[in-house]
Amino acid sequence: MTDSPLSLTALSAQLAEQASALAASAGSPLTSPAYLDLVRRAQQVDALAEQVLKLCVQQSRDAGHTWQELGDLLGVTRQAAFQRFGKPIDPRTGEPMDKTVHMTDAAERATRIVTDVLEGRMDAARPSFNAELLAAFTDQVRADGLATVAGLVGAFEGFGDGEPFVRRIGDHTVVDIPLRYEAGDMKARVAFDTEEKAAGIFILPAETA
């Protein structure tokens, strides 16, 4: 028998207790090993805060609030809010879709692929492509795509601030990687299929959901 989910009241109480413990530890004189304990406590607070936020969003949806309202409050698009907190139903089965990311190295692999593509090492990138992408993503397609991006935001200057963002969308594992160009920020998006092969590579405006 599995435990029932904790209520918002119980989770909030746990969060308050952990946050108080963190504040007490941070306010005390620290020796070197204690800094690692501070990180552990902060990690626990962060995990509990995420659970509280998810439950608050769920209850707001149950009360009739829209994804647009929640996105505005969280400072993201309604699509981004849904992708983070929603519970999509698979139209093929009628069951909730699995949002668990199973590719533990998705961020590293996506970053490597994007680096190879941007630097023209297509022979290194192509072994990671599935058959459809291998056929579609020719050297000409790459050149035309990069020319379009250069026309919008100028020369590529390097990877942007922030870590790659990995999530599961439908049957795909999707990774967004911040990129910095001379006239604006963009992001690379790599989608992996169920065989963990790259099924799509895009360069998009940074605000794209």
Rank of each mutant, 00 (worst) to 15 (best):
D161P: 05
A19K: 07
G184A: 09
P205S: 11
V76K: 00
Q83G: 08
A23P: 01
G170K: 08
V57R: 02
H172D: 14
V190D: 00
P205T: 15
R167M: 10
P29G: 06
R180Q: 15
Y35L: 14
D105P: 05
E182C: 02
T148R: 11
M103N: 05
A124Q: 15
S12M: 01
C56M: 12
M122W: 04
F202S: 08
L8K: 04
G158W: 01
A47W: 01
L204D: 08
L204T: 05
T93G: 09
D161Y: 02
A155M: 07
T93Y: 02
H65T: 11
L152E: 13
V45W: 00
G94R: 09
R84H: 09
G71K: 11
R142T: 10
G170M: 06
I89E: 09
T104M: 10
V166N: 05
G160A: 09
L8Q: 10
S20K: 04
Q79G: 05
L73M: 13
F137G: 04
M1G: 14
R41Q: 14
A206G: 02
A143Q: 14
V45E: 01
L134V: 04
A150W: 01
A110L: 07
P5L: 10
E163K: 12
D98V: 09
S25L: 13
R121C: 04
K197V: 00
T111F: 05
E196F: 12
P33D: 06
T93H: 07
H65E: 12
V114N: 05
